[in-house]
Design a protein around this nucleic acid. Structure first.
Length: 114
RNA sequence: GAGUUGUAUCGGGCAGUUGCCCCGACAUUGUCGGGGAGGAAAGUCCGAACACUCCCCUGUUUUACACAGGGAGAAGGGUAGCGGGUAAUUCCCGUCCGGAGCAAUCCGAGAGGUGCGAGCAGAGACGCCACACAACGAAAGGCGUGUGGACGCUUCCGUAAGGAGGCGUAGCCGAGCACCAUCUGUGUCUCUCUAACAAGAGAUAGAGAUGGUGCUCGGGUGAAACGGCUAAAUCCUUACUCGAGUGCAAGGCCGUGCUCCGUUGUCUUGCAACGGAGAGUGCCGCUUGAGCCACGCAGUAAUGCGCGGCCCAGAUAAAUAACUGUCGCCGAGCACCAUUUGCGCGUUUAAAUAGUUUUGGUAUCAAGACAAAUUAUUACGUUUUUGUCUUACCAAUACUACCUAGUGCCUAAAUGGUGCUCGGUACAGAAUUCGGCUUAUAGAUACAACACAUAA
RNA sequence: CUCCCCGUAGUUCAACGGACAGAACGGAAGCCUUCUAAGCUUCUAAUGUAGGUUCGAUUCCUGCCGGGGAGA
């Protein structure tokens, strides 16, 4: 899991999506907003109850994303606020497929240092 | 043995890797130690605690404001056999009654009153009249209250959906009873006639048949059948209970932080001071509580009391996790072993094994016999091809030989154990707290009860 | 999280506890017309679900299911 400092707090949440750049994959989408380059990047995950009706499913998807971000966190550049949005079919994925989707989105957004 | 019902409990264990939230200590941004979802955390269907606003009453006070204590009445809501439990309940316990079930057991808003009573079926669940009484209304009049608008009661009057009243319609089939009418024949008495009987006339008694009227009972229809019964879980009353509403997004704290506005100062942006507003899990409420465990006592029980021990999530864009290995549990399949049981044949002749006969199937490499075809002017022979039979193999049947009391079902069925493979390992995630109810839940365990089958 | 409201044909709405649940716009078939439109006739299709009260439930009561709304 991510520590609380690396997650987006309620005040820092970007209010309109129009400011940031959006990236899409087949089961997820990502909104990235630039901030100052000093602070480390922060992440968030949004899933509505229409996507997954049970709270257990929603918690599971949220934990999967935070876990893959925690694995890749050393490679990620500083100074961004990133929000993952789930699409309607995102409950169909297995765990390894879900991790690949998150990695592909991070790569497409040019957040990885390499 | 295989079920059913009720109650209660559990609902994965261990190890490794990578991580998260809270508390404490040391120390300072790290180490160490402790803790980290449920029986339903769910639905939000009830109830309570707690908090605020409002209403009313009492007291302090001349009154008001304010403070303290409390919820009597009205309206509205809820509950409903009876008794008990609880902080409280649409909850729980005991018990009566009604219903379901063979039974264990389960279900029930189960007080009292009034009366709407359609359609179909059926002979029939009524129709009409009037407005004395009851009910409702108030244009006009009267009386009362009030300055007045008006309000209340009442007379004449009006209303009919009809409580009570009157009249009437309908009334099938069968049986019984009563009354009336007609007819039939009989008995008794009196009179006439006769010697007498018979006959005739009159009166009276009871019987039978037919018809009519009235009453009672039954049939059939329907949930209910003639003036009663049953019925509101949409009405009314009674008893008990809740003052009404909002719900932790209740409610409160906070400046030195953030945003906006205004004023003043320096006076170009900007900065500083003061005031106001807003936002804000920054902090409280927030987890020690109708708490959990064990024992004893009271009680049929729900539950209560006493005593001892324990501290057991507290996040806030929201922690409690992810992956791997192994073990466990359940189901299915396969293999091996063990036990039990069934059916057939048999102990007077078995089966298995060997040989022969008959029948059927397969194979046609080789050999033999027979038949057909091919080559055609005709005949015969040879070669080739095809078919059948025998020799070959298998199965069944019958007989013979051999041998003993078991053997067969071409490995039958059930149960248990071991090993291997495959599949499954549920429902589901705290958000103010607690007590209930309802719903979802792979499976596992314990106890109690009931009915069925079998054996003793 | 807390608190409210609503479920009837494909759609929008009706229906004292009483038959076979009605209307409009739809859809299908036929008639009319040279053809289409309009018009006429016929058909189609529903009480969210499970119990209870009642002789009888769309309506009354209770539990689930689904949808919608309010409070920052």
């Amino acid at each position: 899991m991510l520590p609380r400092l690396k997650k987006v707090s309620r005040k820092e949440f970007p209010k309109g999506h129009k400011k940031g750049a959006t990236y899409h994959s087949s089961h997820l989408s990502l909104v990235v907003v630039k901030k100052d380059f000093e602070t480390p990047s922060k992440f968030s995950f949004v899933i509505s109850s229409k996507v997954a009706k049970k709270a257990v499913e929603r918690n599971k998807l949220k934990r999967w994303t935070y876990q893959t971000i925690q694995k890749e966190y050393d490679n990620i550049k500083n100074g961004f606020v990133c929000v993952f949005f789930s699409k309607k079919n995102s409950t169909e994925l297995l765990h390894s497929q879900f991790e690949d989707q998150v990695r592909v989105l991070l790569k497409n957004a040019h957040l990885l240092k390499k």
